[in-house]
């Protein structure tokens, strides 16, 4: 098992409607200097959470006592663009974030989410707008059911799409490397044929 399977989760959702939130903003470079995954909750949105003197910025959602640790974030388009740093995903999860809902995510970040058990939902724009409006008013209790592919927030109920492979990975939490290594013979056979066909490629 490499992470806790995502089945049904409940919690408070907060809104972060800005477009193009990049991974430098999610996890600034001063937190990339470790060789492990620990302590990254301190780094999440650091520049938005603290001012230059290190004091918390009161109205930022991670400091606002009404949420403190939002479980779900409703985000703007192209969330997670920029650097490939997986530290952004580790930090969000360590800070208690369990799912992200938006219209689009940057590719590498999106994959990084899946590999770690963070559910990134590409939802329809009008569903995202409705959730954003609700979560902007104040803390919004929400329930995400991945097997059913539904989001429920009060009277708002929506369905989302997800590729079967991602859904399987997220609901199983199984170690992806282990699963692939079950096919080691297929990889070895492919490789032998690949090197026979393109012999200059063999390193």
């Amino acid at each position: 098992m490499s992470f806790e399977p995502f089945i049904v989760r409940e919690g408070l959702a907060a809104a972060m409607p800005v477009a193009n939130v990049d991974t430098d903003v999610i996890m600034p470079k001063q937190f990339l200097k470790g060789i492990d995954r620990a302590g990254l909750d301190r780094g999440v949105f650091h520049g938005l959470r603290y001012d230059a003197s290190g004091a918390p910025i009161a109205d930022f959602i991670f400091n606002d006592s009404r949420w403190r640790a939002p479980r779900f974030l409703i985000v703007g388009p192209n969330f997670g663009c920029g650097s490939s740093r997986e530290h952004a995903v580790w930090g969000l999860m360590q800070a208690g974030v369990s799912a992200l809902i938006g219209t689009s995510f940057a590719g590498i970040f999106f994959d990084n989410c899946t590999r770690n058990g963070l559910l990134a939902i590409c939802a329809a724009p009008n569903d995202v707008d409705a959730l954003l409006a609700r979560a902007t008013e104040g803390p919004c209790a929400m329930r995400i059911d991945l097997p059913e592919q539904t989001i429920v927030a009060g009277d708002l109920k929506s369905r989302f799409e997800i590729e079967p492979g991602r859904k399987r990975a997220l609901t199983s939490g199984l170690d992806a490397v282990g699963l692939t290594l079950e096919h080691r013979d297929a990889i070895a056979a492919f490789e032998a044929e690949h090197f026979a066909r393109y012999p200059w490629i063999k390193p």
């Binding site: 997986e86 990084n112 990889i187």
Partner: peptide
């Protein structure tokens, strides 16, 4: 580009999902 989990997957299997 890939993240660190995929680096691990690549190193161990020479492949990626």
């Amino acid at each position: 580009g890939i993240g660190t989990s995929d680096i691990e997957h690549y190193l161990a299997t020479q492949t990626l999902v």
